[in-house]
Structures are given as C-alpha cells and as structure tokens.
Design a protein around this nucleic acid. Sequence first.
DNA 1: CATGAATGAGTGTTCATTCAT
DNA 2: TATGAATGAACACTCATTCAT
Lengths: 177, 177, 177, 177
Amino acid sequence: MGVEGLTTTRVAERAGVSVGTLYQYFPHKQALLAAVLERHLLGVVEAAEQACRANRGRTVLEISAALVEAFVRAKFSDADASRALYAVAPAVGGEELVTRLTQRGQIMLCEVLASASDRTFNQLATVSYVVSTALIGPIQGLLTSHAQTTTVEHVRDQLSAMIGAYLMAVGSPRESA
Amino acid sequence: MGVEGLTTTRVAERAGVSVGTLYQYFPHKQALLAAVLERHLLGVVEAAEQACRANRGRTVLEISAALVEAFVRAKFSDADASRALYAVAPAVGGEELVTRLTQRGQIMLCEVLASASDRTFNQLATVSYVVSTALIGPIQGLLTSHAQTTTVEHVRDQLSAMIGAYLMAVGSPRESA
Amino acid sequence: MGVEGLTTTRVAERAGVSVGTLYQYFPHKQALLAAVLERHLLGVVEAAEQACRANRGRTVLEISAALVEAFVRAKFSDADASRALYAVAPAVGGEELVTRLTQRGQIMLCEVLASASDRTFNQLATVSYVVSTALIGPIQGLLTSHAQTTTVEHVRDQLSAMIGAYLMAVGSPRESA
Amino acid sequence: MGVEGLTTTRVAERAGVSVGTLYQYFPHKQALLAAVLERHLLGVVEAAEQACRANRGRTVLEISAALVEAFVRAKFSDADASRALYAVAPAVGGEELVTRLTQRGQIMLCEVLASASDRTFNQLATVSYVVSTALIGPIQGLLTSHAQTTTVEHVRDQLSAMIGAYLMAVGSPRESA
DNA sequence: CATGAATGAGTGTTCATTCAT
DNA sequence: TATGAATGAACACTCATTCAT
C-alpha cells in the first residue's frame, strides 16, 4: 500500500524485527507508517518550536533567520527519512496528522510573532500559516533533487530573506517610545 | 502503485475505455499516471508562463500578484485533480517530471524578473527557484484541507505580499535615468 | 480458514484455473466453498425429492426404502466430495445453508408421507425432520471410515428397516374401506 | 486450525494460563483440541454406557427410551461445547477419535441389546452401529439451530419411538417359557 | 484496433510455536 | 515451571499486465 518497496516485511527487516513483532505493536501497516511519519514530523515541529521559544522578543528578521535555520536543519538532519516520508503521508491518511502538527507549529509561531520587538501583526493566523507552509516546497524540492550542501545553504538564506521581508512588510512598526 | 483505488481498471472505466485499450497507448500504469500528471502540471506551468509573458516590463509587485493569481487559479480550477495527483507524483517517478517542469517554469520566471521595471536581480536562478516552489506548500495545504474560497483568497493575497516583499528586498533598484 | 489444505490456490489449481479467476466469480473463499457445498447438497436434496415424487401414494415401507436408497446413492456417488465437504460446512457459515436445504427436503418429504397409502401422520413436521436427519449420522460414519461397499449396503438396508418401522409405528392406519 | 477464533492464545486465556503453559502439556494445538474433544465425547459415551448398565434385562422399548434420554441429556448439558466441538472434530483428526469412542459405545450397546428381555438380535454389530449413529444427525441439527427446549423434547420422544420401533422390528421375539 | 477474462507474482496479516527470562 | 514477546511460514486476496477473440 502506497510507497513502492515499503512492504511490511522490508520495514520489519530494516527495523531489525520480524513482521509478527511489528503487528504486535501496530494494528495496520497504515498505523505503523503513520507512527513513523509522526515521529519525524514531531522532530521538525519541536525544532521549530525550540527556535521560536529561544527568540521571543527579538526582531522579526532574527526570528525569521532562526526559524528557517531550525527548519532546514531538522529536515536535512535525516534527509533520507525526509525523502522517504514525503511519499508516505498521502498513502497513510497523513493529512489529518500533518494538519494537526502544522497547527501545533503555528501556535508557537503566532506567539513568537506576537512578541516581536519591531512589528505587530493583525492577521496573525494567516501570516503564520503562510510562513510555516511556504518553507515546505523549496525544502522538499532540494531534498528530492539531492541538492548539494552549498545549494541548500543558498536557498536557506533566500528563504530567510523572503520570510523576513514578508514579515517586515506585512507587520506594522511597533511604537516603542 | 500509489493512491488507493487508482487501479488500472478503474482509471480505464472512468476514461470510458477498457484496460486493454489503455495498454495500447501506455506501456505501464506508471507511464499512464505520469502522462496525466504531466498534463496537469503543464496546465499550471503554462498558466504561469502566460502570466509572465503578459507582465513583462512591469513592476515586481505587479508581476508577483499576476503570478500568484495565475498559479492559484490554475491549481484550483480542477481542485479534485490537484488533490489526487498530489499523492500520485511520488509513486510515479514524478520527481524527474516535476523537476523538469519546474525548471521550465523558472526559465520564463527568470526572463520576466529580468525585465522588471523597478528591480534587477543577480542570483536570478535561486530567486526564481524560491519563488516558484514557495507557492506549493501553502496551496497544497489549502487543497488538502478543503479550505473555503474566502480563506483561499486571503492566503493568495498574503502570498502575493510575501513574494512581492521578497523580490523588492532581494532585488536592487533599477537606475532609470 | 477452515479445512487444512483447502487453500484458495490449491482449490483454484484443482479447478484448473488461477486464484485470480476464482476471485472474479466469488467475493470470498467462504462464498466459494459455500457454493461448492451448496451444489453438493442440492444434488442430494434433489435425489431425495426425485425419490419422493416417484413414490407418491405408495406404502410407507416402499417410500422408506426408496428414500434411503436415493440418499445413500447420492452421498456415495461422489464419496470424496462428501467426505471433504463434511468439514467445510461449519467453517463456512454452512449452518444456514444446511438448514435451508434440509427444510426444502422436508417439504417434499411431508408431501409424500401425507400421500402414503397405508398410514397418516399428525406430527408431520417432526416426523420428517427426524427421518431426514437420522440418515446423516450413519452415512457420515460410513464415509469417514471408508467402509466397504457391502458394509454400506448392510447399513443401508438397516436404515430402510429403521425408517420403515418408525413410520409404521408412528402413523395411524389409513382407513380405506 | 479449524474453528475461527479458536487460537491457542485465546484458548489459553480462557483456560486461565499462558500459551507457553499450554505447550508444556500438549505438543500441538491439534493434541490440545483432541483432548478437549475426547473429554466431551467421553462424557457422552459414559452417559450412554451408564444408561445401558442401568437397563440390562429390560425391554427394548425401555432400553431405547433410556438411551436416547441419556444421549440427549449429555449433549445438551453443555450445549455450547457440543456446538463448538462439532466444527473441531474434522480439523483435528477427530475421525479416529470419534471412531474409537463410537466403537466403545457400541460394545456396551451390544451387551445391553443382547440382554433385552423381549427380543434377540443376530446382526448385533450393525444394529448397534445404526442405533448409535442415527441419533447424531437430529441432535446436531437441534444444537446448531438453537432449538427450544420443547422442540428438543418432541424430537427426543420421536427418536425414542424410532429406535424402539426399529429394535422391535429387527429383533426376533425372545422365547421365554 | 478494442475488449475484458485470465493470470499469478506480490503483499498485508494471522497465528502456531519457541525460548529467554 | 510459567510466561508472553518474538518469530516467520502460510494464507487470503489484489491488481498490473497479457492475449485470445
């Protein structure tokens, strides 16, 4: 079901156990893959949350840079998994999961944006939705094209610039007398 | 292969022919789905190209708005297909296809950005890569969450703003004496 | 499911087709085996019905003899199938099927008993239930023990005697002045 | 093997032990089920033997009634077990077991028939085979159709009548000067 | 050319059996 | 001796692909 070559037997082998054991912990192949996917996405979300927490009260440019940096680092720290799981999500009812985790990420993002020292936002929800999802496409592209590290870094910096410029433009200057 | 329920027989039925006929035109299921995917993506790319062509020489903000508008319109004009094909791409060796069409899109994007009346760019390739891929994530998200039209429009406007701000920030003001 | 060695593949092979073909005609293994079982039981029931029809208006002893004879002949005409299917019924939800066919057999049996020239019955339903089911045990025993033909014939004659004696005893002499 | 849901783990649970423990007492699942089956059948056979012993020297009608009564009572005293085990026998090599116990039952049956006060038999083996197996079908039918108690009693009485009539008819009047 | 019945390799899942604790 | 997690062979079922009509 779904991704080619991701048979239960193969997954079990790679995990160092037997199929039977897998089925002692997961009712479905779907549940198994969903769990793997969730773990991966949780890692990414937590990295982003961590970056948000550590940059409360900073300028939007600092926040942008930290967020993008954290996101890219998390995605590329296990690039193989990221690549493989890309195809897994749709085949696993991952939509619900992805939606849930995206929302969780946005909560923290809203918070940190609200705390920014130089800007205030009124459409916070939409802004944070756009910020968090805009990173997905470029990074996924880099992953599937097996881009070189220098390319990744270039793109990462451009993403920082893009998010930063966006937040500067869409936010109102905070009055700090 | 890939999406549940997308069996060759069912695809044939929906196409109003028999499986056998399908196999007279495509060597594989993979080739068949790739063709469908290609047609869909071509539509999107051509819409974008069209928008680019029509906005040569305008300001980057005008270009941004037109591009985003065209992209969103193209994706949502057959939302069901967009949703379904999302899951198909990875299962079909769609990476190569996606890469190829993305590149094609970028060529036109480079050209129109180079023609912008108010800015010049030096890292044109990276910029256009970021611009074209940054739209994917937010739009895919809207599609899979079956977002309402008003939500789609809000996000679309924010995307325009984001791309516009990015291009304004990353480009150098063009000297037009 | 159910009987050892009765795998779908093996059944298909024995039927001279492939598994896939089997599944084009039956939704389940269960449905497949149920169909086989039904065909077999139908054969037996029809043999019995035929015997009943041919002996309307005769004496109960004649009817008994004909019925037992037909039943035994039908069961032993394909002894292998009878043996194999014995184990199939419970594993296939065959109860319902067996009940249905048993009832069908009883209808004809009631009719012929009602037509007997020398006896009348009041508890016709119970009597015909007992008559039709009493034959099952002895015959199944002969089948599973691979009894010799002569043994089968001895038992068959005893069964005739038993059913005959029962009907003579339980029925009231018909007054035919 | 055999009945759906009769997994070793479940059997163990119901028995209040672990699978491992089960395998300390039985080499196979087959052996385990055979043991259960044997216990059940032994109960039935012993009930029949008991009835035979208690009716030595009586008339065949008395013997018939007592035998049928004992048989029915034994089968219905744990109707659930009777029903479940019906499906187990064929899947467990129960034929041999059933044959063995049937023969044991027949020995006692032969003896009591030989002692009957009003009849003598020459084909004793065949007669007792028929008598003991003829009860199986009707009773099994009642069990699987979850018949009401009154129905069971009606059928039981008819079975007494049938067996009684058979023995009266097939035996020769004993000369008791 | 079009058809769709037949094929059978491949996959998810179960469950009897083992063995380290 | 009892346990129950781990094992993996075996099976039901699917579906891409072929080919006789």
